[in-house]
Amino acid sequence: MRVRSRRLAGSLILLAAAPLTALEAAKSDHELDPLGIWACLAYGDPVFGDEHMLLRFVTAGRVDLARQTASGVGDWTGLSDWTVEKRRLTFSDARRGRRYAADLRRSTLGGTWTAAAVNGGWWCARRADAIAAESLPLRRSPAEFYVPPLVLNVMATPRYPRQAIREAKEGRAVVCFIVEPSGAVRDPEVIEISDEIFRNSTVVALLRSSYRPWEGGAAPRPGCRSFVYELEAAF
């Protein structure tokens, strides 16, 4: 097994949401409230790579974005208005030429983005310190929401499903999740999977992984991980 740490390039031409499981179907009455500030990760862009950003949804229908880099967090910039139709949230980022969409039946904010020639995904964790719409800290600088990058503590390797080997099946999965300040991983959601045979081993390995704990702010963070299952002929 090998672990590749490079960033994911634009290979994610993906992201039709995986078919609903029974559990997900049972939660279909749930509708996520996007109001508030979210720490988000957008991935899949071959030029920009993985991008950390803050998104701020306010009651007026406006959404603001602040990009996070290694040196800090930029200022809020306004994006398009956000709209919700049939539990599907959409908004646009004209500067990147992207149109974002999210299924509000999910456990946390995230979904797909599309641009002229490339698609990708995005995933967010709610900032616990800015939930209520009435108390949105509109005047607070985004720098106040800065959190350092996640540092891996344990990256558990999945077991390749035996039946998949027998059937010579290869595939891939992308899972997004929330990382607690303790470093623990929770709420994994499989957002892309080529074959259900890989679901269990992927999620089990992910939940055995952990990140280095962090202090200050104590807000959970979003993360995503891709798993590529391949077979090589040994004879």
Partner: peptide, 8 residues
């Protein structure tokens, strides 16, 4: 062989 990438 399983390859994992953290997207962040």
């Amino acid at each position: 062989r399983i390859t994992m990438e953290d997207l962040q």
